[in-house]
Amino acid sequence: MTKHDLDPSDVAELERRKRASLGQLLLRSARLLDERAVARVARGARGVSQVRRAHTALMPYIDLEGTRLTDLAERARVTKQAVGQLVEELEAMGVVERTPDPEDRRAKRVRFTPSGIKALLHGLGVLQELEEELTRSLGQKQMASLKKGLTALLAALESSEASEPQEEPPERR
């Protein structure tokens, strides 16, 4: 099927709905912000120049005291194998390490190394710079309103997430 086989009214309706969709706006905004942040981190790399978007997507799920690989996979909603590959790459960069799990000596926890913490702080600094640039572009009032709305949206989504059944990662189906 080519683009020419599509009904023009369906294509127009699809584009209209995509532009009107909050989910689409949030996903595109997050992707663009993440791409800009990763590009800046790579340009001003402090020992971590190979970081990709897949790595940055995993990092928020790693607790400072460490997180089991299976828990990381569940939180990120990807397979254990995919998380294992990302963790291996982050280990090779010196961002994370695997340590014995104090609750189960057979298990390992993934945690940030001291240089990984420094890399996170650098990344958060880059995000702060981008936020300041966006604030200059959008204006202080609009940025404050946006943050307030997104904070409320996140709280609503997190509270409703607890009451909804979770879909299992692909490896468990």
Rank of each mutant, 00 (worst) to 15 (best):
A12K: 08
A12P: 03
E13W: 04
R16N: 08
A20W: 14
A20I: 15
L22D: 11
Q24P: 00
L25E: 12
L27G: 01
L27C: 04
S29Y: 09
R31T: 13
R31I: 13
L32Y: 09
V38E: 01
A39M: 06
R40P: 01
V41M: 07
V41F: 00
A42S: 09
G47V: 05
S49F: 02
V51M: 09
V51L: 15
R52E: 14
A54K: 09
T56G: 02
L58S: 04
M59A: 12
P60R: 02
P60Y: 00
Y61A: 13
Y61N: 07
I62H: 07
I62S: 09
D63Y: 02
D63L: 12
L64D: 14
E74P: 00
E74Y: 10
R77Y: 00
T79C: 11
T79I: 12
V83A: 12
L86D: 03
E88T: 11
E89S: 02
A92V: 15
M93C: 10
V95R: 01
R98S: 00
R98G: 01
T99V: 15
D101R: 04
P102G: 05
D104N: 10
T113F: 00
S115D: 08
H122S: 02
H122M: 09
L124V: 11
G125F: 07
G125D: 01
E133D: 06
L134P: 01
R136G: 12
L138C: 05
A144Q: 11
A144F: 11
K147L: 14
K148W: 10
K148N: 05
